[in-house]
């Protein structure tokens, strides 16, 4: 018995460690939603509608992927929505008023996002400002800067028709004819893979969990906590930059007044996916599922003709349930 117990225990520990159970619950909820909506309406489980759902997930999904990093440190980034807008405005300025190079525009947008993230990280780690306040400030600053730079008017990508194809083109059709899935969907899943590798296979990911688990113990283990925190906020910012490109490409314009409110949807997706707001626990797969749950819900409720006002109420309830379920799980763990 002495011999048997440890092996089963260690298996249990591995099970817990990978968070398999946690993802299973979120995943099961997603499947359940899909089954319920498919049964309620013949219009739900159709190729075009599913593609629509995936496309709708892309922008908030990429924001949520980025937010996952900061949330695992036990922090929060309220600026991701407006940083996204700021990045798309930068892309617009470079492409429409500057060089006209799409590649340069993309690079500029991601760099702008990363820079904003670094600024948040600096305020949080060097100036010791609580993440909520620091990123609130960055949110307001980027919101204002977007309006200043653009002169409060949308920037249209009129001279570069290829820009719209970044999100809405269907490059996959070149390989599988008739399989018209927009690039944005693949970009989202691609970013998810990158995020997942960063979090589970690199040193940033390890330190990310360590910081969220016990920052003081991490510091006393000789980890340069301040530096890594800036790195983590920078990653979150860079993801916002990618989201900015997707957003601008979908709208074929940079809309400087948009963006606020997206950060809350991103946080909701992360939390539904089982990442703990108190830090130390979370996963990218969870966030992907969380983002999908949000857009499946929105889409399904719309198909069932639930008024938009009520959709918001229901999604709020889902966030509450998800966090509650997470707390019960933790109490039992």
């Amino acid at each position: 018995m002495e011999m048997a117990a440890p092996t089963s225990l260690s298996r249990l520990a591995i099970f817990r460690k990978t968070g398999a159970f946690q993802k299973l619950l979120a995943f099961a909820s997603l499947i359940l939603l899909i089954v319920v909506f498919s049964a309620s309406s013949p219009n739900f489980f159709k190729f075009d509608n599913i593609v629509g759902i995936l496309l709708a997930t892309a922008v908030t999904g990429v924001l949520a992927l980025g937010s996952t990093f900061v949330i695992i440190t036990g922090g929060i980034d309220l600026a991701v929505g407006t940083v996204m807008t700021f990045s798309s405005v930068i892309a617009g300025v470079i492409i429409t008023f500057g060089s006209g190079s799409i590649v340069l525009g993309i690079a500029g947008a991601v760099a702008a996002g990363a820079l904003c993230g670094a600024a948040s990280g600096f305020a949080v780690s060097r100036m010791n400002i609580p993440p909520f306040i620091a990123t609130l400030a960055v949110m307001m600053m980027t919101k204002g800067l977007s309006l200043v730079i653009s002169g409060t008017k949308p920037i249209y990508f009129v001279d570069t028709p290829d820009f719209a194809k970044i999100a809405l083109g269907t490059s996959i059709e070149a390989i599988i004819p008739g399989f018209a899935i927009p690039n944005a969907v693949f970009i989202f899943f691609g970013m998810a893979i990158i995020a997942s590798l960063l979090l589970s296979k690199t040193i940033v990911g390890r330190y990310n969990f360590a910081l969220g688990s016990n920052e003081e113990a991490a510091r006393l283990s000789g980890i340069n906590v301040r530096r890594w925190k800036i790195v983590i906020y920078t990653i979150t910012g860079a993801f916002s930059g990618v989201a900015g490109i997707l957003m601008a490409s979908r709208l074929n314009s940079a809309q400087p007044a948009l963006g606020q409110g997206y950060e809350l949807e991103a946080i909701a997706a992360v939390v539904i996916g089982g990442t703990s707001l108190s830090g130390g626990r979370g996963s990218i797969l969870g966030t992907v599922i969380g983002a999908l749950i949000m857009s499946v819900l929105t889409n399904g409720l719309r198909i069932l003709s639930v008024p938009q006002e009520w959709q918001t109420v229901i999604i709020g309830g889902v966030v509450l349930l998800a966090v509650y379920a997470d707390m019960i799980r933790r109490r039992n763990a």
Partner: peptide, 21 residues
């Protein structure tokens, strides 16, 4: 518990934490 360990992480992560590079 407060200053030495990452209490929610496992033995391996804790032992390696100072030497990740």
């Amino acid at each position: 518990k407060r200053y030495g360990l990452l209490i929610d992480m496992d033995v391996c992560d804790n032992i390696a934490m100072a030497s990740l590079p």
